[in-house]
Amino acid sequence: MSTATRYADFATRYARYLSPEYERLALAVSRDRDLLALLDTLPPPKRQPNLLFGVVRFLGGPTDDPAAFRDYVLASWPAIEPEMRTRATQTNEPGRCATLLPLLSALPQPLALLEVGASAGLCLYPDRYGYRYGDRTVGSGSPVLDCTVTGLEPPARAPEVVWRAGLDLNPLDITDPADLAWLDALIWPEHQHRRERLRAAAEVAKAEPPLLVRGDLVDDLPALAARAPKDATLVVFHTAVLYLVPEPRRKAFIELVTALPGHWIANEDPGVISYGDLPDPPSGTMHMVLALDGEPFAWTLPHGQSMTAIPRR
């Protein structure tokens, strides 16, 4: 996929309906030869829209006007380029816990959670947050995560978590102001509610920091999984991570995780993991597939806003 196509695809499949600002920006970049030429000097994984837009926001540049953005990127490329080469899109969206909760609550308790691509580990606290599924509330913690559910029953309780750990190539420290600022920069401009819950979730993690291990999702997963308590149900999970992993490593990870004891929860773009024939997703923006042990369970929106049941095959 060319860089121009990548940005146009991001505008129409990801940003539309969710971020008009990023939709305009991505479409403008997709048509700009000068910006595309700069991006094409980077390795393909580093050309992604979320990374460019996040770096510009992190450095204090404008994203609300495509012309001003263009001028800033062309003038500031010497500062932007090294940031894009060294950083990664590590969006740590605690709202995704609202879509994980129905699966986690239904598994044998207590749980030992192991997140792959954990970033700062904010999705490792599904038992500490509060949830609102229409008129059903679960838990009493903060932040309160809203999620619309269709075709399935909201969970009646939060899970019991006795161990939590994360694996990441570059784990972030939620107590480090610079790392927190990077997570803030990755949140889309219009999503102030996500900034508020990022900070609320950060306070939860600061009170009891998770075990975060720097490592590879294939090479280092077995050793970390072996550290989980034997009297707890191991759950290896990931959300919007595998699209960043080259296909051979992705296949190796899937083979590995399916052989581990316990359960595997994936919440990924439908093109990342093959599930055979899937029904059409709900209309609107791009949906992800939430699956348990390789069996599709629900369509979800990327930030945990909604989930729609997928009939069992």
Score class of each variant (00 low, 15 high):
Val218Gly: 15
Gln90Met: 02
Ala112Asp: 10
Leu113Glu: 09
Ala112Arg: 09
Thr12Tyr: 05
Ala112Gln: 15
Arg6Asp: 09
Gly134Cys: 04
Ala79His: 12
Asp135Trp: 08
Glu81Thr: 13
Arg250Met: 11
Ala200His: 00
Pro222Lys: 05
Cys123Ala: 11
Val236Asp: 14
Arg197Tyr: 14
Pro210Ile: 01
Trp77Gln: 13
Pro261Ile: 10
Pro78Ile: 13
Arg136Leu: 12
Pro44Gln: 11
Pro44Gly: 01
Ala11Tyr: 00
Tyr133Leu: 14
Glu115Tyr: 00
Leu111Arg: 06
Leu59Asp: 03
Asp231Thr: 10
Gly294Ile: 12
Pro296Ser: 05
Val213Lys: 08
Leu52Gly: 08
Asp32Gln: 03
Leu107Asn: 05
Leu27Tyr: 04
Asp135Glu: 14
Asp231Ser: 09
Leu124Cys: 04
Leu242Ala: 03
Gln48Asn: 13
His191Gly: 12
Leu234Phe: 00
Arg57Glu: 13
Ser30Tyr: 00
Pro43Gly: 01
Asn92Trp: 07
Pro108Thr: 06
Tyr133Cys: 13
Ser119Lys: 12
Val138Phe: 02
His193Trp: 08
Val116Leu: 13
Arg16Ala: 11
Ala120Asp: 07
Gly166Ser: 05
Glu203Trp: 02
Gly284Lys: 10
Phe253Ser: 15
Leu111Asp: 01
Ala4Leu: 04
His238Lys: 06
Arg6Phe: 02
Glu81Pro: 11
Ala309Leu: 07
Glu268His: 12
Leu244Phe: 10
Arg195Asn: 13
Val73Ile: 12
Phe237Cys: 02
Gly130Trp: 09
Arg312Trp: 11
Asp173Gln: 10
Leu42Ser: 04
Ala226Asn: 00
Tyr133Met: 15
Tyr17Lys: 01
Gly139Leu: 07
Leu221Asp: 14
Ala232Cys: 03
Ala112Gly: 15
Trp299Met: 10
Gly61Ile: 10
Pro94Ala: 04
Lys46Tyr: 15
Gln48Leu: 08
Leu217Phe: 03
Asp127Arg: 12
Leu124Asp: 00
Leu107Pro: 03
Ala28Leu: 06
Val138Glu: 03
Ala79Phe: 11
Val204Ala: 09
Tyr275Thr: 08
Val257Gln: 04
Ser142Cys: 06
Leu211Tyr: 05
Gly95Val: 14
Leu103Ile: 09
Val56Ser: 06
Ala156Thr: 15
Gly262Lys: 03
Leu113Val: 06
Thr3Gly: 04
Thr285His: 15
Leu172Gln: 13
Ala75His: 15
Asp9Lys: 06
Asp219Met: 01
Trp264Met: 11
Ala207Phe: 07
Pro108Ser: 10
Trp188Met: 05
Pro210His: 02
Phe253Cys: 13
Pro102Trp: 03
Thr12Gln: 14
